[in-house]
Design a protein around this nucleic acid. Structure first.
Ligand code: ZN
Ligand code: ZN
Ligand code: ZN
Ligand code: ZN
Lengths: 163, 163
DNA sequence: TTTTACTTGTTATGATATAACATTTCATCT
DNA sequence: AGATGAAATGTTATATCATAACAAGTAAAA
């Protein structure tokens, strides 16, 4: 058990189950879960925070691959397109999905103190993304397809240390 | 009257009133509404869409100033910090606030067809940003300070043309 | 096995943003 | 008005994030 994000959990299980979920999903959807794609997802999962593409490249380089930027961006595109990871727009960074397989609108809480990122699970029925605009979208005739929802603030640890 | 964003309105009035609101606010807060800051806000208002910092630099250059990147970013920082403009994270671009002076959580509808951006006015009481996470923030002990809310989809015009 | 689609390797470049420091302008006090 | 400190600007250089383009390899389908 290690502290990850804002809480404690069994992180090795967390990684294994996320990888397994991706394997199952790729088999079902006939997607190629190639070595690089798997490795990038593992890297994202191992950190459990938002990583920039070049941080991932550094990690790959440390493992002996001399990977160029498109390698990271292609893998990230694949992972994001298929719901295994999300882009955190506010940070220009990428994070493994905390709810793989679950139908959900991704929403993040980003600590400005330590940059930890916690993914909330907004159920698609109630709040996000359509209901959130409170009819403004409907009034404007806008058809919502996706939504970026990112809150910035202080995580519990940083609230304490800032005291 | 010109078509702007998703609708029609008196745009010259729109510009004048936003500039006036900024003047009043700066006087009250003892902020310096300098020539460059005013000009950048005017540029944002004149387009009424999200502009990249380098598009603003191009505009300034066309007016004879040989402005370097920090000039645009400093002016944008000032405008964003004081609520006269917002950054659209998804586009890495900046847009004049449609509700200057009003207490509001900014929320945007971004058309993937034509890149038009429409700012919704979420009242701070009801939906955004706290209520939106449906208790997830409270459960995690996270203290929300600001929120980015950006919906992507199709505006009415692009829905018609895509028909 | 031929074809086709997809994936990867690689080079180069584009797009966005900031660090650092010298200089000027502005606000304030005497 | 003149001195003083804070704020804003000018400028150079560089950091950071992302994609275009094309050649080469690999896997899936016919
Ligand atoms: Zn997710
Ligand atoms: Zn923190
Ligand atoms: Zn606004
Ligand atoms: Zn449109």
């Amino acid at each position: 058990m290690t502290k990850i994000g804002f809480g404690i959990h069994d992180h090795s299980h967390c990684i294994a189950s996320a990888i397994h979920a991706a394997e199952v999903c790729c088999a079902r959807e006939k997607l190629q879960f190639t070595k690089t794609r798997r490795r990038v997802l593992e890297i994202l999962l191992s950190q459990h925070k938002a990583l920039g593409a070049y941080e991932i490249l550094d990690q790959l380089a440390a493992e002996g691959q001399n990977a160029q930027p498109p390698v990271a961006y292609r893998a990230l595109d694949f992972l994001v397109s298929n719901g295994f990871a999300h882009k955190v727009e506010k940070l220009n960074a990428y994070i493994a999905c905390s709810h793989p397989g679950a139908e959900h609108a991704p929403a993040f809480m980003i600590c400005r103190g330590c940059n930890a990122v916690h993914e909330a699970c907004l159920d698609t029925a109630n709040r996000a993304p359509k209901g959130m605009f409170g009819g403004a979208a409907q009034a404007a005739g806008f058809r919502i397809e996706t939504a970026v929802i990112e809150a910035s603030g202080l995580c519990p640890a940083c609230q304490s240390s800032a005291a």
